[in-house]
């Protein structure tokens, strides 16, 4: 993890380990703590935590890990989740609640109910999914600070 503070806000970078289900969520946990220390409103923290954690879990179960960059400015919390995994075949379907391509062993771990992407969208003010089969997926999400 690296931490830079500049005019662009606080920038946090994390590497999500591939296939390490036990550690999935570590980055989200760290971001949550940093937002708390910064005195960000609980509602914003909750939305960021859920969206980023869902994304982090997805990176581990579908994409062999990846890189997460979180930028915190007075206006928003911007999350970029970038992987070089298999890509999403049908984004429209993947955005539908209940649609999942997760294998049975992932469901046994308590995930893969087809709620991840819809939940990420529901928790964020803006979300963009860029994906290419065999190349990877980048998901950009923004949660706006309140009263801005």
């Amino acid at each position: 993890m690296s931490d830079q503070t500049g005019s662009a806000g606080v920038v946090l970078k994390y590497t999500v380990s591939p296939d390490d289900f036990t550690r999935a969520g570590e980055a989200s946990s760290k971001v949550k703590n940093i937002l708390k220390q910064m005195g960000i409103s609980p509602d914003v923290i909750r939305k960021v935590s859920i969206a980023m954690y869902e994304g982090e879990i997805n990176m581990v179960i579908h994409a062999h890990g990846g890189e997460i960059t979180v930028t915190i400015t007075p206006q928003e919390v911007l999350m970029e989740l970038k992987d070089v995994g298999p890509g999403i075949e049908d984004v429209e379907k993947a955005m539908k609640a209940g649609y999942s391509t997760a294998p049975e062993q992932v469901r046994a771990l308590g995930f893969g109910a087809g709620m991840g992407l819809p939940n990420m969208q529901g928790c964020t003010d803006e979300m963009k999914v860029e994906t290419e089969l065999g190349v990877g997926t980048t998901i950009t999400m923004s949660v706006h600070m309140e009263d801005k």
């Binding site: 989200s28 609980p42 909750r46 935590s49 859920i50 954690y53 308590g110």
Partner: peptide
């Protein structure tokens, strides 16, 4: 309340306070 028993149960609880 859950019958799932792995570290992600704790992480999920953490994220949701």
């Amino acid at each position: 309340i859950t019958g799932l028993c792995n570290p992600q149960v704790i992480r999920t609880a953490e994220m949701l306070d």
